[in-house]
Design a protein around this nucleic acid. Structure first.
Lengths: 204, 204
DNA sequence: GTCTATATTTAGATAGAC
DNA sequence: GTCTATCTAAATATAGAC
């Protein structure tokens, strides 16, 4: 593995473990047993490391978001949410210090907003489709509020876990998926609603 | 107004407006047209300013949280959520950079967790009570998930607004209250549910 | 209580030898 | 590509005069 890639890899791990504001360039270099000068040979600034990681994040997220929309069932939703949450967990440093990072690196703000908007559109599309197929019973206002709730929960679930328990627990992802499903459940037919409530015993 | 109080007052305003990480002691002093030395005469460190503001926050929050529990109706909930959200907005700097601040000032972590736990207990108590009175139709698991959802939403609604729109809009509070109500609505009787959905037209 | 001037610390970044 | 040594800038904090 080349030094440049090791820097990216270790930076991501340290950011996720300790929070981006606590990780200095010197610390990254120490962790890799290389000199600060060497690190700055490969990246001209800390911002450049962030920029490359943010690009990776964007690519991962969009590759997930282009897939679905029309032919998604509730079982697919469960699986799909896992994909989203895994990607969020992979770049959790972005989410945990979201407001701080957006203030410190304003070049990311519009791009993150665009991802949120894409997610909102995907969510509304899936829910409207489920309504057409009579699997979801909700008004347009309810679908809008439900979408806000889904995006808010996916975005801040790891922050919430981390503040609540002082760290992100092993089952935080599964709990996040369950939590989002529990928001959708009340609008489903009784049998599907029971299925979601049953997921708690099966997975948590 | 004494200098010490002016420092607290202006610090809170600047933290809320710009985010705690962006506000230096020098900037606070400049804003007040006093010298840094004067600021450090009144507070021996930036942490001391934070400590006093956090205490104010705790007192405000607990004074709201001891009140209710048993005899609260859905109309009261609407009013009560406004109180909570107003207090959160008053100390929004804490919420917007929550994870960052908890990492930088670890002495606040347990105390914030205690507030979250108190809120959770209050929420469960109110919901269980509503179930007893047959105004809420939900299982114990559903009440638990609903409570998580309510706490998550109140805690991160301002962060979400701020990231989504680049700032906290004027109607962010009202939208937050509506959003929480919309999470509870599906578990209510049709007439109360319709009332909550009607709140959108009335207030937003 | 308040000021000016300065010290301390630390993170980010560069220069130049190897 | 990598190292050592060093620089700069910014933020926190202190000393001592008034």
């Amino acid at each position: 593995m080349k030094t440049r890639d090791r820097i990216l890899h270790t930076s991501l791990r340290l950011f996720n473990e300790m929070g981006e504001p606590s990780v200095t360039t010197l610390f990254i270099a120490d962790e890799l047993d290389i000199s600060p000068g060497n690190l700055y040979y490969h990246f001209k600034s800390k911002t450049d490391i962030l920029e490359e990681l943010f690009q990776q994040f964007e690519e991962c997220m969009y590759s997930i978001l282009i897939v679905p929309e029309s032919e998604m069932d509730i079982e697919d939703l469960w699986f799909y949410l896992h994909l989203i949450f895994e990607n969020i967990a992979k770049f959790q440093f972005l989410y945990k210090d979201l407001v701080t990072i957006m203030a410190k690196y304003p070049q990311f703000e519009k791009r993150f907003q665009k991802i949120l908007n894409t997610k909102r559109k995907a969510s509304i599309s899936v829910l409207e489709n489920a309504r057409k197929n009579e699997r979801l019973h909700a008004s347009t206002d309810e679908i809008e509020a439900l979408t806000e709730q889904i995006i808010l929960t996916t975005t801040f679930w790891l922050s919430y876990s981390s503040v609540r328990e002082g760290q992100v627990a092993d089952d935080a992802l599964a709990r996040g998926v369950y939590q989002v499903m529990s928001v959708v459940a009340p609008f489903l037919e009784p049998e599907r609603r029971a299925m979601i409530n049953g997921l708690k015993d099966a997975y948590l």
